[in-house]
Amino acid sequence: MDATTGYLGHGTAAERWERARLFFDAKEYAPAAQILHALAQEAPEQLAPRLLLARAYYHSAQLSRAEHELRAILERWPVEDYARLMLGRTLERSGRADEARPHLRMAAAMAGEFPER
């Protein structure tokens, strides 16, 4: 698929969601992010497009955008453990391990993964 063909933003929300998932699955994260960004703006109350958008940003090394989206997700859904884990990983990848640590610990605890004593 080629992002320059001009069909990224066309179709119903369901069609664009499917197209974004196809791009994501093909590891074409930039066009996936382009579609997902529009979907997330249209329906900010839907978690799935926003999480996939954050993942697309992360995988395309757009770490500040991933961080911004993940913080917005966690503001709205504070118990979303996967977003918490992704934020920790994003901060780690950004060289901010100390800032990442509490997010990673919280994500593990939320997922029921407790360190052994």
Results as ranks from 00 to 15, higher is better:
residue 107 A to K: 03
residue 89 R to D: 06
residue 44 P to C: 01
residue 57 Y to A: 06
residue 95 G to F: 12
residue 93 R to Y: 05
residue 21 R to K: 10
residue 52 L to T: 09
residue 99 E to K: 04
residue 85 L to K: 05
residue 67 E to I: 05
residue 4 T to Y: 15
residue 56 A to Y: 03
residue 63 L to P: 07
residue 116 E to K: 11
residue 79 V to T: 14
residue 102 P to I: 07
residue 23 F to H: 15
residue 34 Q to F: 12
residue 60 S to W: 02
residue 75 E to D: 12
residue 25 D to L: 08
residue 37 H to P: 02
residue 60 S to D: 15
residue 92 E to A: 02
residue 111 A to C: 05
residue 44 P to I: 06
residue 13 A to N: 14
residue 27 K to M: 14
residue 19 R to F: 02
residue 101 R to N: 05
residue 20 A to W: 03
residue 21 R to H: 10
residue 38 A to W: 12
residue 107 A to P: 01
residue 16 R to F: 07
residue 18 E to N: 13
residue 64 S to L: 15
residue 55 R to E: 12
residue 92 E to C: 08
residue 8 L to K: 06
residue 38 A to I: 10
residue 65 R to D: 13
residue 29 Y to E: 09
residue 107 A to L: 04
residue 95 G to H: 10
residue 14 A to V: 08
residue 87 L to S: 01
residue 82 Y to N: 00
residue 2 D to S: 15
residue 114 F to V: 04
residue 74 L to V: 03
residue 50 R to C: 05
residue 74 L to Q: 04
residue 2 D to E: 12
residue 65 R to E: 15
residue 61 A to L: 15
residue 1 M to K: 13
residue 18 E to I: 04
residue 51 L to Q: 06
residue 82 Y to W: 08
residue 46 Q to H: 14
residue 43 A to D: 11
residue 70 L to H: 00
residue 1 M to S: 13
residue 4 T to I: 15
residue 93 R to I: 01
residue 69 E to P: 04
residue 54 A to Y: 06
residue 39 L to K: 10
residue 55 R to F: 02
residue 5 T to L: 15
residue 73 I to N: 05
residue 27 K to L: 03
residue 59 H to A: 09
residue 102 P to N: 03
residue 58 Y to G: 01
residue 37 H to E: 10
residue 16 R to P: 08
residue 56 A to R: 06
residue 95 G to Y: 11
residue 116 E to H: 09
residue 97 A to L: 02
residue 6 G to F: 15
residue 66 A to Q: 07
residue 9 G to A: 13
residue 87 L to Y: 03
residue 17 W to P: 01
residue 115 P to T: 07
residue 32 A to E: 09
residue 12 T to H: 11
residue 27 K to F: 08
residue 31 P to S: 12
residue 52 L to R: 08
residue 96 R to P: 05
residue 89 R to G: 00
residue 27 K to T: 13
residue 36 L to C: 09
residue 34 Q to M: 09
residue 21 R to Q: 13
residue 13 A to H: 11
residue 107 A to I: 00
residue 109 A to H: 11
residue 37 H to K: 15
residue 99 E to A: 10
residue 44 P to Q: 07
residue 51 L to V: 05
residue 36 L to Q: 08
residue 83 A to I: 03
residue 11 G to W: 04
residue 24 F to G: 09
residue 96 R to D: 05
residue 61 A to P: 01
residue 102 P to T: 06
residue 54 A to R: 02
residue 5 T to E: 14
residue 44 P to S: 04
residue 41 Q to C: 06
residue 23 F to C: 04
residue 42 E to M: 08
residue 80 E to Q: 15
